[in-house]
Each structure stands twice: as structure tokens, then as C-alpha cells.
Amino acid sequence: MTRGLGELEQLLLFALIELGDEAHGVAIRDLVQLQAGKSLSPGAVHTGYERLQKRGFVDSSLGEPTPTRGGRRKRHYRITSEGARALHRTQIRLQRMAAGNLSELERLADLGK
């Protein structure tokens, strides 16, 4: 792998882990909004997953059409093992750097206020 994962991509991958079988566009959007406070357009969600899918980190499948969707199908996403490994790698790297520095970071950030 040549490129790490961006913040948005990490958010999207974590959302898949949390939502499991229920991971589809609207649910993911709500989750990211709720947990990360980040509001994404549906287009941005799918664009993000398409990129991840191209890199083999995500699988997708189409669900059944439902009336609230005007008879259209949902797209479900699933994290692949490769995606899990990549996310894990990125997280470990980040946490190693963060370890022991968080309290100092909080202090600096507070001073900045």
C-alpha cells in the first residue's frame, strides 16, 4: 500500500465496523453526523466509498428496493479484511504518536483558547 487513509476515509471505515449489516448510505451519514459531528452529502459518502472500494478496502452490494426510497435499492458497504488491516495500521501509527502526549496536547490546546 502506498497511501495512508485520510480522516474522512477512516471515519467511513469505522462507520462500517459499527453498523455492520446495517451499513448503508443514510445510516452511515447519520452516524458520522452524530458521532463525529461531520455532515456529509450523500454524494460525498458514496464517492468516498467508491474510492475505498477501488483500493479494495470495501465491498458493496445492492439491497432490496424500499418504498421510502421511491422503489430504489440501497447500497450496503462492508469493510474487507484488507480494509481492516489498512485502518488498523493507520490507527496504530496515530496512537503510537499520540501515546503520552495527549495530556500535554490538551494543555496546549487549552492555552490556545
Partner: peptide, 17 residues
């Protein structure tokens, strides 16, 4: 393509919600 279907579906679902 599928992109349209999913996107429109998501938009409409949120709309009804």
C-alpha cells in the same frame, strides 16, 4: 447507473425521514 439509483434513494429516504 447504480450510482444514480443509490444516490436518489438515499436522498429520498432522508427526505421522508
Amino acid at each position: 447507473g447504480v450510482r444514480r439509483e443509490v444516490l436518489l434513494g438515499d436522498l429520498e429516504e432522508t427526505f421522508h425521514y
